[in-house]
Structures are given as C-alpha cells and as structure tokens.
Design a protein around this nucleic acid. Structure first.
Length: 271
DNA sequence: CCGGACGCCTGTCGGC
DNA sequence: TGCCGACAGGCGTCCG
C-alpha cells in the first residue's frame, strides 16, 4: 500500500499527537508479521517518552530514550490514532497506548509489515543500512541516477523501485514519474542518457511532492493517521488506466508486467 | 555482480 | 450463488 507519500502523510498526521507523549503500554495481539515482533518490545517501551518520529524511505522511526522503534507498513498496513474505547478489529495487531489515553493502532491485514526495535540509531540497522538517498533530498540528482544506471540492462522502472538506488518510489509513483518524464518503463536503464536521467529525477521529485501535498493515494484502503483517505488518486495520469485515453495524446494507454509488477504507460508519448 | 522468480499473507474481484 | 485463479500499494531471499 504505502509508498513514500503515504508514509510521510501518516508521519505528519500522527507526529504532533505523539511527539512529547509517553507510551503508557504496548499491546501486541499478533506478533507474526514479516518478521516476529520481538517479545521484549512491549516491556522495553512501556512508559517511555517519544521524542521524535522521522521517516526514512518507507520506514517510520520512533525515537525514545529506550531506543528506536522501527515500523514498516508493508503492503496493507495503516497506523491510526483512535480513542481508547475503540474495539480492535481483526487485523489490528498492535496498540501503542499513549499517556493521554489514545491509542496508536497498527493494522496490517496481509502482515507484510514490520515492528522492530534497535538501541543504535536505526541508520545502522541492517534493514536500513544499505538504503539509497531520499528522493526529495538534494543528493538525488540526474548525475547520480545516470551513474547508477550505467551498464544496467534492468528495466528503468525496476531500477527506480530499487531501494538501494533511491528509497520510497513504489509501483504507483514509478509509472507516474516515468510518464511525466516521457520514458518507457521497460527501457534498459543503461540506455538512458544524462538528459533522460535529469528529467526522470525531476519527475520523481515533482510527482512525490504533489502526492504528499494531496495526502497520498488511496486506491482501496490507505488512510492517514486520522483515518482519512489521500486524494492523489484523482491526479494519477496512467496508473491503473490501461486502455483509457492517454491524457496527453488520447491514444489508449498500455499496460504490461515489468519485474512482476503491473505497469502503465503510453507507447506514443514515452520513448 | 546481475536480473528474474518466488514467497510471505489476506482480501477482493472477475470469470465461469 | 459459489468456486477458483489472478492480482494487490513491499521487499528479502534464492537461484541461474
């Protein structure tokens, strides 16, 4: 579900309500996520202060004096602030009870998500150590992407979805950014010129920025920290629109599977 | 090293 | 109406 804009939307939504509060109690109803929730997590974080919530790629990181919580929403996860009286649903696996009585509730039907903790700053954690630059950071440039693409026969769409190259670009925004950059998603990455890479990097930044401004994309079930959907879906140009008219040239949009993921593009506009 | 396939889970949707 | 396969916003691992 959540790509970078959705995770950032959640962070912005819950941050002001959680930073500076203590976690009164942690309730784990289902520990079997992508990896098991550590058995000592609940005891370790009971009563501790949350000093900050930051995002790295699609990870949410809760800073506390007892260490960091590392949360990933996987494909179907959501994190919502709810009242203490809200009964948990079938897939509400974890509650972080706050000291104001509210609950930060982690729901994840497919259980591809993750909740871990680490004592060291999480940049050193094995899951985060190898991550590439943030797409909205100044260090993510056309020159950087061009260098990374050299000699690669991989489809450019797969390249920009590789978190070692750049974090946060998932299946929706990869198709959208490539359309905006007028580059076919199945082009071999190494065939891109410097100008292509400049346009692609710029397009990724614009698409992600606009998606954050719209509160993310809700296709079926994404909701922010307050349970609200995101509205970027209305601005999607190609994702999920195979067969519909290209918004630029009106030719029917193409769909294809690239790297086992559904992909959408216009073969006339994108080269 | 690289690229592709697979599996982890549950829910939903379309076709028959 | 029911069944069954395909597919879904991610990502680590394995294999050739």
């Amino acid at each position: 579900m959540p790509e970078l804009p959705e995770v950032e939307t959640v962070r912005r939504g819950i941050g002001p309500h959680v930073q500076g509060r203590r976690i009164a109690r942690v309730v784990v109803r289902e520990a079997r996520l992508r990896r098991p929730i550590p058995a000592d997590l609940a005891a370790r974080f009971a009563g501790v202060l949350v000093t900050d919530i930051v995002r790295r790629g699609k990870y949410l990181l809760f800073e506390t004096p007892a260490g960091w919580l590392i949360l990933h929403l996987g494909m179907s996860g959501s994190l919502r602030l709810v009242g203490a009286a809200q009964p948990p649903g079938k897939h509400d696996h974890v509650d972080l009870e706050l000291d104001d009585g509210r609950l930060l509730r982690f729901c994840d039907p497919r259980r591809f998500g993750l909740l871990l903790w680490t004592r060291e700053p999480p940049v050193h954690h094995p899951l985060l150590a190898g991550l590439g630059p943030e797409p909205l950071d100044e260090s993510f440039t056309g020159a950087y992407l061009y260098e990374k693409a050299q000699g690669r026969r991989l489809a450019v769409k797969s390249l920009i979805m590789d978190s070692r190259i750049v974090v946060g670009v998932g299946n929706i925004y990869a198709s959208e950014a490539l359309f905006r950059a007028r580059i076919r998603p199945d082009r071999a990455a190494g065939s891109l010129g410097r100008r292509d890479c400049d346009r692609l990097v710029e397009s990724i930044k614009i698409v992600l920025g606009e998606a954050i401004a719209a509160g993310g994309t809700t296709l079926r079930d994404f909701v922010d920290g307050q349970g609200r959907p995101g509205y970027f879906r209305m601005q999607l140009q190609v994702y999920g629109r195979g067969g519909e008219a290209c918004p630029v040239c009106a030719r029917p949009l193409d769909s294809a599977r690239i790297g086992q993921r559904s992909s959408f593009f216009c073969r006339r506009c994108q080269k």
